[in-house]
Each structure stands twice: as structure tokens, then as C-alpha cells.
Amino acid sequence: MSTHPLEIRSLNVAYHRKMVLWDADLCIRPGRSTAIVGPNGAGKSTLLKAALGLIPAASGEVLFYGEPLKKVRSRVAYVPQRESVDWDFPVSARDVVAMGLYKKIGWCLPVRARHKRMADEALADVGLADFAGRQISQLSGGQQQRVFLARALAQKAELHLMDEPFASVDAATEQAILTLLRRLKDQGGTVVCVHHDLDTVAEYFDDVVLLNMRVVAQGPASEVLTPDNLRKTYGARLTLLDEAVVDLSRPGAPRES
């Protein structure tokens, strides 16, 4: 039996009869931070959502700590994209963080004082102690992202799956998230982030998964982030690398969908 926090075997996902993920094989190592990197439309978010059963997979197997998600749900926390919800919703930052505790509280039981305390602690961990009572529309984009992280923290999970936590956040939030990632790892946790910024990948993460509908490469950042692998992932569209420019006319390069 595998002890990997997350193992994905030949996962295929189709959306409107179009394949989005082909035969994705993935193995996330425990106690490390992994970035899933790839161009737009590469299926990065889809990979996370399909792994969590939020969208149906055509075929494949997903194991968390060697078991199906149902059996180990309390060990896994998910941070959706910030844009996926309506921030005008009439709830406070504390209310949102407490949502991470709903499963533990159980059906039909209210959020009690000690749960509110736990939510406040999680908010303090992301530097938002003074904002607990604020309605979420009155927070900045970065603060909203941190509220989402605090909600995952409150779950006290071992594996954290985060969808673009660094997308359009301010410098303070970026630092707060980085500190948090380090702390989660220090506590023996595992972090997987969908990430879009190639410049910071090697600096922020231990491992990298390069994805463009298929898994192009995976492993330690220093080994994976080679010009050749990046070309395979980004094809002709990667202008950051000089080598890519030469390859503009290469046939079979992935195109924007």
C-alpha cells in the first residue's frame, strides 16, 4: 500500500466531449511542497478538481494516503480559486473560516463558541486577527485569499490542495502564504499548489509537476525545470526562454484551446 499523500494513475478527464487531461500519472511526495505548472488551459485546476471528485473523470484512479478520498477526507484540505465564489455573500471572515469546521461539527449542530475560537486562531495565523468580524466584501483581494487559506488551516489537514493561491495577490499576502507553506511543511504536512508564475516556481516549491494536458515531467524543481522540459510544456508560446523562440515553427506544438 502506498503512503503517498496523493497518487493519481492514468486519469482521463473530458469536458464537453473534449479531452482536458490525458493519462495523467502523478505522485506527490510527503512533507514537500509541489507546484503544478503549465500554460493556460493545460488542465491544472481540472487535475485538482477531478482528484477531489468535483468533476467526473472518464477513467483513472486517485488515491489519498493509499485510500479513496471518502475514507481520508479529514486529512485533505482544498483551497478553491478565489474567483470561484461571490465575495458579496453576507458572511464575515470568521463565518467563512468556520466553514472548514462544518464537517467536524457534524450535521444539524450549530457553530459553537469553541469553533469560533478555532476560526479566530486560523485567521490570526494568516495575519487577519483584526478582520474576523468584517463582511468578506470589505476585504482586499489578498485578504480574501488569506481567508480561504485560514479556512483550510482550520481543517487541520495533512495534505493541502490549493488552486492558484498566488494569483493576483499583494506582496504582504504573498509573504504570508509563503510563511504558511513553510510552517505546514515543518509540521509534516504536504502542499500542492496550482501555480502560474514560472519565475518563482523554483524559489517557492520543492517539487514541480509540468502539465499540459499530459504530465510532461515531475520531480525536484532543479531537475524538472530544464529548457527542454519547459519547451515540451509550453511549446512555441514560451517567450521567456531564448530557446523557445527558435522553435516557433516546430510542428505539433500545443496550441491555445
Partner: peptide
Amino acid sequence: FDPRFAKASG
């Protein structure tokens, strides 16, 4: 508020 998160957390 967040049906996806609800589903992911069971």
C-alpha cells in the same frame, strides 16, 4: 457560498 468546497469537505 461555496458548493465546491462543501463537496470537497464531504
